[in-house]
Design a binder for these strands. Structure first.
Length: 493
RNA sequence: GGCCUUAUCGUCUAACGGUUAGGACAUCGGCUUUUCAAGCCGGUAAUCCGGGUUCGAUUCCCGGUAGGGUCACCA
């Protein structure tokens, strides 16, 4: 088939019919990684031969999606290349050229029927419960092709085909898989079946990576390669990505979402790449968190799976969290700032300094932007930027040992003592270690929960929060004492 | 329905004839602890079924079952 020393050329060839989803991107990812690993060429080609389904802005969207996840191409519609154009609608001369070769060989003919007539043949076959084959109706004397009627391939040899696939191994199909399919449609545009073969040939593509839904049409492609007398590329059939929960192949019609949505939801591109890479491929071993560079280095077609994998959002969340932890502190701050909701940014004491300080705390508690928004909803963030409001009884620790009768006085005393202890720490030494050391002995004496919980609650106003020492450090000495004094005042009401 | 194809814990997977069938996510429990989170430790959990081949099958073969794909002037 291919000379092993030949430069590897792969491509990703979406049609501009709307957004791309994870399935599309996974295909692109493997083709890109394979080419990159082998110092080959990766081509982006737009298959815009169905004008009816075309959606405005799709090409920009594909480009944005690929760029976001970090896939770059060597040739494409935006950057050109030696075999431009990279849009099929601008390559019509090529298709006509090869169509004429087939006509001259007697291997293509004009379809004399109307769509309705073909449909009637099909329905009749259905009624008689036998498979429909156009070639059963192959016309005796087809008219000269005028470019206004579909041009059909005249399958030269109705036979069984066997071929090798780099993932599936040996595959085969009987003659019933072969039919006189349309090469060029009535509107002058080629079909996928024809166009991709011509383009891959002209662009020197060595490996075709695509979903396994193309297995059943492979014999048609094989027959066409033969008729055209061109060498076929290697086939690399990728397993499907199944939708969450169900067993259906993930597709646009089944609720697969716009790939760029994942950016809005706070997923990191490198986490997304990591996750997608592992649906349908596994390097063996226990390592599950890999960087894009590592992925390219270890990617191997031999380790692509043959059966489909489910899209598991919980695993994606975990992977995202792992990658979040891998980020530099500056990148982490950038991440939190990017996804922090506006209502937090509008709080009275909002400052980027506090955001920087609470970034590690937040990061520990979230896996994506949804979690961050959830934190905000639960009031887990607002207290860093504004005074908490609460009822005085919630200041008491659940298993408090403070006697009921004069509990407000006693707790006030504890907090007053704490304040005076903290007064001793200078502003510059007001960090969590010093704060803890300062109060620890006292806390041991009165019972840790009876002062630590009230202190934490006075600072946060929340049942759940980080520990009081880190809270105090982030708020700073003045604000900490201020809030503790507020708690004392609240107890008096 | 015809044809093609797939099948290991709930999920993603490791095993390339010989393992107490390993890991990860999720889940459950424990430790730690002022609450949460994180972390650490541990538990539950799988070879679809039936025949072969073999000294020995998750692994090879056949059949069944179940899932997926495909049968367009869509890609």
């Amino acid at each position: 088939m291919n000379n092993p020393n030949k430069k590897i050329i792969t491509r990703f060839a979406p049609s501009p019919t709307g957004f791309v989803h994870v399935g599309n991107i996974r295909t692109a990812l493997y083709a890109w990684a394979f080419a990159k690993k082998n110092n080959g060429t990766f081509i982006l080609r737009i298959e815009d031969t169905d004008k009816a389904r075309e959606v405005e802005g799709s090409i920009e969207h594909v480009i944005a999606s690929l760029k976001w996840i970090g896939i770059e191409w060597n040739e494409g519609p935006d950057i050109g290349g030696p075999n431009a154009s990279y849009k099929q609608s601008e390559r019509l001369e090529s298709y006509i050229k090869y169509a004429k070769i087939l006509i001259d060989k007697g291997l293509a003919y004009s379809d004399p029927y109307t769509e309705e007539e073909v449909e009637a043949f099909r329905n009749k076959a259905d009624e008689e419960k036998r498979p429909f084959l156009y070639r059963d109706h192959r016309p005796e004397n087809p008219p000269i092709w005028d470019g206004k009627k579909p041009l059909r391939f005249k399958v030269p040899n109705i036979k069984s085909y066997e071929w090798e696939d780099m993932v599936r191994g040996h595959l085969k199909a009987g003659p019933e898989a072969l039919d006189d399919f349309i090469l060029i449609k009535g509107d002058g545009y080629p079909t996928y079946n024809f166009a991709h073969i011509i383009d891959d040939f002209e662009m020197g593509v060595t490996h075709i990576m695509r979903g396994d839904e193309f297995i059943s049409s492979t014999p048609k492609f094989l027959s066409l390669y033969e008729a055209l007398e061109i060498e076929r590329p290697e086939f690399v059939m990728l397993p499907p990505i199944m939708g969450q929960g169900g067993k259906k192949k993930l597709g646009k019609r089944d609720g697969a979402k716009d790939f760029l949505e994942y950016e809005n939801e706070g997923y990191l591109p490198e986490a997304m790449m990591n996750f997608l890479a592992f649906i349908g491929w596994n390097p063996g071993g226990d390592k599950e968190i890999i960087t894009p560079e590592q992925f390219v280095n270890i990617f191997d077609i031999k380790q692509i799976h043959i059966s489909g994998g489910q899209f598991n959002e919980e695993k994606l969340d975990w992977i995202n969290h792992e990658h979040l932890k891998l980020l530099s502190i500056d990148k982490q701050i950038e991440y939190i700032s990017k996804y922090l909701p506006e209502n937090i940014k509008n709080l009275p004491n909002f400052s980027t300094k506090i955001v920087e300080n609470i970034t590690p705390i937040i990061l520990e508690r979230i896996r994506n932007a949804k979690d961050l928004i959830e934190m905000v909803k639960n009031g887990d963030l607002a207290y860093y930027f504004s005074q908490p409001i609460y009822k005085k009884d919630s200041l008491f620790f659940k298993s408090s040992k403070i006697p009921q009768e004069n509990k407000y006085e006693i707790l006030s005393k504890y907090i007053i003592d704490a304040v005076s202890l903290f007064e001793d720490i200078s502003n510059s030494d007001f960090n969590k270690e010093n704060i803890k050391n300062k109060i620890w002995e006292y806390a041991e004496k009165v019972g840790r929960g009876d002062i630590l919980w009230p202190m934490r609650f006075a600072l946060s106003g929340q049942d759940k929060s980080p520990d009081p020492f880190i809270l105090a450090e982030i708020l700073g000495k003045d604000e900490t004492i201020n809030r503790l004094n507020n708690a004392i005042a609240t107890l008096k009401i």
